[in-house]
Design a protein around this nucleic acid. Structure first.
Lengths: 152, 152
DNA sequence: AAACAATCGTTGACTTTTTCAATGATCCGT
DNA sequence: ACGGATCATTGAAAAAGTCAACGATTGTTT
């Protein structure tokens, strides 16, 4: 997305009223974060989204593709592509739904969990870099507020 | 973006560790917010991005297109499209840069400010809807934390 | 039990968005 | 004045998003 500036500028435009617009703040932080995250995940052949899918596949929650689509705010067809990719690389596999035979449950392979652990460690470093302007308390506060805004 | 669920579900998948991933939380809140914002702005022929450009044009800060691109995390060519659109509709105009004649300064027209005021009011309602799970204090806290994370 | 509508994953077409290199004009340092 | 850098702009290529249709399966209605 956009330009590749890794620099941390304090643009004079932040003074504008729009600097308080939640939508813009989210967009900006999300944009810069994605850049860093994808760069960090590239070493493992992953991107933010495939990492999310892999994480949920490793979670033991046995998500269906529909649940993945809902939770990740994706179109079902996008989930197909993501799972296809991970499955071809032997990181996850599709299992038949238990109550519903239409649904496919996505579960991780041993190799998938191996890769996931490494990638997760890299991502944590990455997050800390992005939020280095925040104290440990503020970091936790931010997470809590985002979660509360999303699902009470 | 993704599916059109306006419903506020509390998916069981939020239980996964990934429910604490800042990147995902930002992506999700940004996704649902964009949907609402764009819907609210549609009445004025605007979207999140053209609204941002219009806001900065109305700010009196006289931003150049390059500054807009940097601040909004967009490619310069995308700014060209956005400004083209707003200019054709008479909401902003391009003025010559003062020190730098290569640069174009984007300023609002009277009509642009008129539209902007209406759109901004609509957006505020929208934001309040999205963050209704948060108290007034928490709302302010969230903004402050996002700003601090972005530029100290 | 048979018919019906709804849902799941999948595919493919279509549109929008993003990315990137090239260009003329202008600026800056030497 | 020269050379390299930056600005806005264009256009093409790549990626991402949207959407309707399909077979298989489920739940619901009659």
């Amino acid at each position: 997305m956009g330009p590749q500036s890794t620099e941390v500028e304090t643009p004079r435009l932040a003074a504008a009223k729009i600097g308080n617009d939640v939508g813009l703040l989210l967009a900006k932080l999300h944009a810069t974060g994605s850049l860093l995250n994808n760069k960090a995940l590239a070493d493992y052949g992953l991107r933010e989204r495939s990492f999310s899918v892999l994480t949920l596949a490793c979670s033991g929650l046995e998500p269906t593709q529909r649940e993945l689509a809902d939770f990740l705010s994706l179109d079902p067809s996008q989930v197909v592509s993501l799972v296809d990719d991970l499955e071809h690389r032997g990181l996850v596999k599709r299992a038949q739904g238990k109550q519903d035979r239409r649904a496919k449950i996505i579960v991780s392979t041993a190799e998938g969990r191996r890769i996931h652990n490494k990638a997760r460690a890299a991502l944590e470093v990455c997050e800390q870099t992005q939020l280095e302007g925040l104290s440990e308390d503020e970091n936790l506060q931010l997470r809590a507020l985002l979660k509360k805004a999303l699902w009470g």
